[in-house]
Write a protein that binds this DNA or RNA. Structure first.
Lengths: 331, 331
DNA sequence: ATGAAAGCGCTAACAA
DNA sequence: TTGTTAGCGCTTTCAT
């Protein structure tokens, strides 16, 4: 850590103390086995005694590997992202990597400028709910290792929660309860990959089930947005509301409670993701659970995989969690 | 970004193209003003045209400044931490810094080993709810810039939420509702700085108010821990329960609901922090709100301040949010 | 199996 | 105001 003189211990200090060349110290620590066992043990002992820790910056400059990954998110307010962060950090740490966190505040310009700024500082980028144009993503993928989360782009590695499975389960659940008129509350931004797929899948499954579907929005993907959407949602005459995500759904329920509209007796409400709080809100929320942590872990694995077998696209299942916010259609 | 040849653009490319020395390019970008305006503009233009972005790693090796900060947390499950992360990222980004996230899984050994591993890779550390021994923290502070969150150690910069204010408000609130017997559910680990202060302050304010206080625990600082504590809590005969944090309090309420014990008619329940969910759980939770984001921001500011006026200790106020989980003592 | 030497891309004295 | 020259601490050929 620190020499008696107060200086940080460098590889030179270890080399001098162990009476070997600096390169030998480097090898002893990075490629033991390519060394005489005794020298390697000796060097290790000296390094330990001196409290030597290689400077990651210097190491990165030489090796071109920083052993760190960036996680780029639209914001840090959404509970869904928190799960992704947790999974990513866990997997990164397990692989001996460091995780850099960056929020881009929903601004696509900031998104690419942060990538540019971190370029060289990390070995790869996990882009969650990327807002950038597809062409720009492909261009970036030409020079950087990236993995997308909840967005698919042809030829780029990605991890998404199956939107078709989710929407299908949702519609089948509602249809089986007798609902014939369902409204989907879109989340902003409207062109959000997941938002588009969820709506498309809901509409198409609705058609095949003989359930009428409408879309409203986009609304902010938060309780606030849900509350703002609630009145319009019931005004459509729908007996069931599917929100783009759980916080929106909770916002809907809170607003309906204020108005005295009973959930699920008058209106059923569903969300997506099963984030923190969806189990203890009132009524508890029926939702399509996303494996948030696994998303983060899978994205890290994708990034760390040998470049050979890349371009995978991982599709994770969504599963229906039935709670108390959905019930038989009234009438 | 990338030269026609596919190589990443370096400072040398810019220098060659602009017909100046590399150091001049460096200056033009880092210390404009110390340069002839025309040269500086010319270099800037060339750099822009080539899409030059300085390599942060190389820059750090030369300057000894990485422009990045590490945020070290016991885990990434606690909602309270999420707020701190959000605030820290925001403030770091505003200051042009990058945030490295590291969880140490509650293990003090991992805590210090992650610090050692990141040493040199970041300019400073924010240590949230640090578990390390005080002496070790002081030793680390000798060689690294650190800022503690929710822990105070003599002479070290820190940001804490006022535990006395919080506990005082809590006890006064309960006393005014006629409660005479209060139980505090401690959070693990027992020696957690905040846990200790909260209990001490509750006990002492209880004494001066003539309210009997007991401590139970420690329990896991989560809904799970709260649920496990609930039965024992009511068994004490207390009419009010104060949990170490909100998730615990929510866990208590869920368990009590299962048992048919009414909150707040039979037992009042309070938590700390006012995290996500405390407003929409059922009943909504009376709690002592912590300014989580501001904690993160303040910690970053502390770290980024000129070394001269360091060793500040910031104490942020906790404020009482009265909701529906507290009511008059029964009887 | 080990050492010598050349960089990685940049910053920062020091010169001019 | 600008160029020259050393490094920063490490990895990595290339020799030996």
């Amino acid at each position: 850590m620190v020499s008696p003189a107060g200086r940080v211990v460098t590889i030179s200090d270890v080399a001098a103390e162990a009476q070997v060349a600096r390169s030998t110290v480097s090898r002893a620590l990075n490629h033991p086995g390519r060394l005489n066992l005794r020298t390697q043990q000796h060097i290790q002992a000296v390094a330990d005694r001196l409290g030597y820790h290689p400077n990651p910056v210097a190491r990165a400059l030489g090796s071109q590997r920083t052993e760190s990954l960036a996680l780029l998110l639209p914001n840090l307010s959404n509970q869904f992202f928190f799960g992704v962060i947790r999974g990513a950090e866990e997997q990164a740490a397990a692989a001996g990597h460091t995780l850099v966190l960056a929020g881009f505040r929903g601004d696509p310009d900031q998104e690419s400028s942060r990538i540019a700024g971190l370029s060289g500082a990390v070995d790869g980028f996990i882009l969650v709910a990327a807002r950038m144009a597809q062409g720009e993503l492909q261009r970036i993928a030409g020079t950087h290792r990236i993995a997308l989360v909840n967005r698919q782009v042809l030829g780029l590695p990605s991890v998404v929660v199956d939107p078709v499975m989710g929407a299908t389960h949702a519609m089948e659940h509602l249809a089986s309860l007798g609902h014939r008129r369902v409204v989907y509350l879109g989340g902003a931004p409207k062109q959000n990959w997941m938002n588009v797929r969820r709506w498309k899948s809901i509409r198409s499954r609705g058609a095949s089930l003989g359930v009428e579907t409408h879309q409203l929005g986009p609304f902010a993907p938060s309780q606030f947005g849900g509350a703002a959407a609630a009145d319009a949602a019931v005004a459509t005459g729908a007996t069931a509301v599917i929100a783009f995500n759980d916080p929106m759904a909770i916002g809907v329920m809170r607003r309906l409670a204020e108005r005295g509209v009973d959930v699920p007796d008058v209106v059923s409400v569903m969300g997506f993701d099963d984030v923190y709080g969806s189990d203890f809100c009132s009524p508890s929320l029926t939702t399509l659970a996303s494996p948030t942590e696994e998303i983060g872990r899978a994205a890290v694995r994708l990034l760390l995989e040998p470049a050979g077998d890349r371009a995978h696209s991982v599709v994770l299942p969504a599963h229906l969690v039935i709670r108390n916010s959905t019930g038989p259609a009234p009438g």
